[in-house]
Simulated assay, not measured.
Amino acid sequence: MANFVLVAGARLGSWAWDEVLPHLGAAGHGVHPLTLSGLAEKQGVPAGQQTHVQDIVDEVERQDLREVVLVGHSYSGIPVGQAAGRIVDRLARVVFVDASVPADGEPFVSAWPDGGAMVRASIVENSGFWPVAPTAHYEGHGLTDEQITRLVEGSTPHPGATLTEPAALERPLGDLPAAYVKCTLGDPEPSDDVAELLTSEHWQLIEMDTGHWPMLSQPSELARILLGIAGE
């Protein structure tokens, strides 16, 4: 059976996967939602990008997990992609859920249209943190008002250094067994860097007709996709 290690995106903690977990557990798999340092119940823990990578590696090694399906959503694709290359002997598949992908030597913000200038400025203005997003940020993503409220109220400011420090890849992403789950509502095409990775024989593309937070908007469908990736 697989061991799912689930890492949510910026500002979020392990709670974001709550509605996905029962579906994976009912199929008999190990389920390990992870909160990264500095977020949710781990607020106050200093964190740079390599801290988040190490959080993931430590979780896998501490529990001696094998057949790992490592799942990263949104921002967390950056540390997940790096961690996957460091646990390759334990890895069954890495799954990027509408996620950013790391480029060696580049920070998360480098892919933004302005090179990350606005995010960097916001981090400076907010004492080293990327502030919680307003309600409007979540509109148009297939979420109910209640789900948006959960996202807003459950979010915590995100440690800025994790967004601005460069990635360090131990092996090319295209060499890893991977799936990319593209949420097509409002943004139907993968980004150029993802499209290039999808030319690899080791990668597959799966589409979901929903917005950027499918663990809330379509949890049972996301779980079905993850189970399919795991070979159910």
Rank of each mutant, 00 (worst) to 15 (best):
A223C: 09
H23Q: 12
L163P: 04
G116T: 01
E170K: 01
L198Q: 06
V45Q: 14
P131G: 13
W17T: 12
S74V: 14
T51G: 10
G85E: 09
P219T: 02
V132D: 05
G154Q: 11
G105R: 10
L216A: 03
V95G: 02
G25S: 08
E207Q: 15
G85R: 08
T184I: 14
G48V: 01
G140I: 06
L227P: 05
V80N: 06
H158K: 08
P79I: 12
N126D: 08
G105T: 08
P190N: 08
T144N: 07
S155F: 05
L222P: 01
P131N: 11
E59P: 06
G38Y: 04
D114S: 07
S76Y: 07
D175K: 14
L91E: 10
M208C: 06
N126P: 02
L227Y: 06
G228I: 07
A103N: 03
E221I: 03
V95R: 04
A223T: 05
H73A: 04
Q49L: 10
E170P: 00
V124W: 09
Y180D: 06
P107R: 11
A27S: 06
A16R: 00
A99K: 01
Y180E: 09
D18P: 00
H141G: 03
H23V: 12
L227W: 04
V80D: 07
G211A: 05
P177W: 09
V132I: 09
I225F: 01
A92N: 15
A84M: 01
D104N: 15
L70Y: 03
V71G: 08
H32Q: 00
S191H: 10
F129K: 09
S217E: 01
F4D: 03
G154L: 13
L36G: 03
A26D: 02
L226D: 04
L24P: 08
L12P: 00
A168V: 11
T149Y: 06
I206L: 14
K42D: 13
E139Q: 13
V124R: 14
F129H: 13
R120S: 12
A195M: 07
